[in-house]
Nucleic acid binder design. Sequence first.
DNA 1: CTCAAAAATGAAAATGATTATCAAAAGCAG
DNA 2: CTGCTTTTGATAATCATTTTCATTTTTGAG
Lengths: 143, 143
Amino acid sequence: MIQKKKHAFNLFAASKGLRSTRQRDSILDVFLSTRQHVSVEELYLKVKAGNPGVGQATVYRTLKLFVEAGLAREVLLHDGQTRYEHVVAGEHHDHLVCTGCNAIIEFENETIEKLQDEIAARHGFLIRSHKLEIYGLCSACKN
Amino acid sequence: MIQKKKHAFNLFAASKGLRSTRQRDSILDVFLSTRQHVSVEELYLKVKAGNPGVGQATVYRTLKLFVEAGLAREVLLHDGQTRYEHVVAGEHHDHLVCTGCNAIIEFENETIEKLQDEIAARHGFLIRSHKLEIYGLCSACKN
DNA sequence: CTCAAAAATGAAAATGATTATCAAAAGCAG
DNA sequence: CTGCTTTTGATAATCATTTTCATTTTTGAG
Ligand SMILES: [Mn+2]
Ligand SMILES: [Mn+2]
Ligand SMILES: [Zn+2]
Ligand SMILES: [Zn+2]
């Protein structure tokens, strides 16, 4: 799984004529080792732990490359920070966001996705992406 | 309609012990005269046109009051600016956002709303709000 | 009406996340 | 290796929004 992702990034890098660098490898390693929805700052700190001297500008730049390469997806919740999550081929999900404890619950709903397509079709609209976020309190926080 | 909204804000202000000021009246007038999805800056410029001397901090502050009062809703698309739209009692809609011309198409879909409730219920999650935005190209831009 | 809190305002500074700059360092084809 | 190009990291710049705080307004009591 991890090897497959690294390979995918290498292919992307090759196709783009990108050079291979210690920092990008490092950042990819750390990103692949994290779970859902890491902020750039969090990632930066982890990278720096194992590789001091990596600048945060590079982390910002590299995460954008991961998105371009199809490895990561930007997740913008409302805490003012851009977060990134792993892209799993052929899968898509949306989020329940707890405003109490910041937990994020992922869900998939094929019917909602289909309805979105219908709505778009009705307006002659070509969908490129979408975001559905439900804010509220998780079962632990609502009491 | 407009009178009703002004009255609603006055009730809210009274209940909160807020004082009545020229600037808030002014900002409410301008807000009520605008159409969908105004940015704070746009609103600020319009207010200043009819009432120079109003500071933008006041516009920022006042728009938050409108949200609290239930008159306005924050709409955060991804252009880095907070926008506000009018709240129509008992109505709710989501957005199709054209990344080509920045047009916003509003839509309502009761089935999607119900499915969201079901998903939340399944996770013991208490919904406070949600946002569904579909990004892509409108019929005019997709060609 | 007068006056003293309390609230509101506006100019300016502060914040904070992200982006741009640019000189120095590193990667790579030949 | 060499020379050319990309990448990097420190730092400055951006830009929307928030804070600060001195000054002005509002308002209710007297
Ligand atoms: Mn997710
Ligand atoms: Mn709308
Ligand atoms: Zn929670
Ligand atoms: Zn368009």
